[in-house]
Lab assay of single mutants.
Amino acid sequence: MEVRTIKVFTTVDNINLHTQVVDMSMTYGQQFGPTYLDGADVTKIKPHNSHEGKTFYVLPNDDTLRVEAFEYYHTTDPSFLGRYMSALNHTKKWKYPQVNGLTSIKWADNNCYLATALLTLQQIELKFNPPALQDAYYRARAGEAANFCALILAYCNKTVGELGDVRETMSYLFQHANLDSCKRVLNVVCKTCGQQQTTLKGVEAVMYMGTLSYEQFKKGVQIPCTCGKQATKYLVQQESPFVMMSAPPAQYELKHGTFTCASEYTGNYQCGHYKHITSKETLYCIDGALLTKSSEYKGPITDVFYKENSYTTTIK
């Protein structure tokens, strides 16, 4: 009895394709271990004539594949690729409408935090270190965002349907971005203890939790000093293409032309909904596939993004 075979390709990165001759009487799992086709788990399936010449994702289970996976995804987590594939199996079914010149995501599976993050990423200057993220990001900007969303979920250790947080998501993504040249110098002034300067680099240099107003941050924000008295913390120097200011959701007025974009969060910790506000020729609110415009805006804002380049204080 002759062994019926077909020729397929296996890959971990969709760049390096490895030619395989597979036995049609055995499952993919018996031949390769966990195997995925377009995100779908085909591990328990036997090869079919229609699979001839198709590319299958496999887990990096030998040295060659491990090197290829690390170079593309910059992670050695053995569960990463499987999590990416199972997320992709959902995100490829989502709709990605162009809204006001940006790629958004039609609401499904509690994905409003991903839509808000995706919209924000198209408006701030950011370059990702893992080629996987950078490639998928370019495709997302062009309207094909399924891979990018699935990668975000995998890097953030999230599953489809789980509630997510924009600030946490951005923080994970910033860790995989090139923020080497970003720098922030802060000064804390206390009447009792004097003053202390701190220099922050990388992710810490672009994120701040405690106030939404970048102007206020430049002037000074009140913080408790270690001595128990009130101290003032203010920005001395900022070198970065953008800054992200966050605070627990509270009524906040966004003035046209003073910011790049913002995240609105309605609801409580267990259950809520994100919308995205962007400042173009007027203010726009993007909620999944829905767009509304207004000249002014007041609502429960939790993150505001500002364009920056270089700032030095005039406070002496």
Results as ranks from 00 to 15, higher is better:
Leu290Val: 12
Lys7Ile: 13
Pro97Val: 12
Thr11Lys: 07
Met209Phe: 15
Pro130Arg: 05
Asn89Leu: 12
Lys298Met: 13
Glu239Phe: 08
Phe80Val: 06
Glu204His: 09
Glu204Ala: 09
Leu173Gln: 03
Ala142Cys: 14
Glu125Tyr: 05
Thr5Leu: 12
Tyr113Gly: 02
Tyr72Thr: 06
Val304His: 01
Arg139Glu: 13
Tyr84Leu: 04
Leu290Trp: 09
Leu151His: 04
Ser25Met: 06
Thr260Ala: 09
Phe174Thr: 00
Tyr274Glu: 03
Gly53Met: 13
Met26Gly: 07
Met207Glu: 00
Leu133Asn: 01
Lys158His: 01
Phe80Ser: 02
Lys201Trp: 14
Ser310Trp: 12
Pro300Lys: 08
Ser104Met: 00
Thr278Phe: 07
Thr282Ile: 07
His51Ser: 06
Ala289Cys: 03
His256Gly: 08
Gln175His: 14
Leu133Thr: 05
Tyr57Gly: 06
Asn16Thr: 09
Gly39Cys: 14
Lys201Gly: 08
Asn187Ser: 12
Phe9Arg: 13
Glu239Gln: 12
Lys7Tyr: 09
Glu281His: 01
Asn147Arg: 10
Tyr73Thr: 06
His273Ala: 06
Pro47Lys: 08
Val189Leu: 08
Asn187Trp: 04
Leu17Arg: 06
Glu125Thr: 09
Arg66Trp: 12
Thr91Ile: 00
His90Asp: 10
Val42Lys: 09
Leu153Asp: 02
Leu283Lys: 01
Val189Asn: 11
Arg83Val: 06
Phe148Leu: 14
Gln122Thr: 05
Ile301Pro: 00
Asp303Glu: 07
Met26Lys: 15
Thr120Asn: 11
Gly257Val: 03
Asn110His: 04
Gly202Leu: 04
Thr116Ile: 05
Leu153Tyr: 12
Lys158Gln: 03
Asp38Gly: 11
Leu163Phe: 11
Ser86Gly: 12
Leu88Ser: 04
Ala146Lys: 06
Lys233Trp: 07
Phe217His: 06
Glu68Pro: 05
Val188Trp: 06
Glu144Asp: 14
Gly161Arg: 00
Leu133Tyr: 04
Lys233Cys: 15
Gly267Trp: 03
Cys156Thr: 13
Thr55Gly: 05
Leu186Phe: 13
Ala150Trp: 05
Asp23Trp: 10
Tyr137Arg: 04
Cys190Arg: 03
Pro248His: 04
Asn147Pro: 11
Val188Asn: 10
Gly164Leu: 02
Ser295Leu: 14
Phe56Lys: 03
Val99Ala: 04
Thr27Ser: 11
Pro34Ala: 12
Leu254Pro: 02
His48Ser: 12
Thr302Glu: 00
Glu253Leu: 08
Thr312Gly: 08
Asn49Gln: 15
Glu215Arg: 06
Pro47Thr: 05
Leu291Met: 14
Ser25Lys: 14
Tyr36Phe: 12
Gly164Tyr: 01
His18Gly: 08
Ser79Trp: 12
Gln98Gly: 02
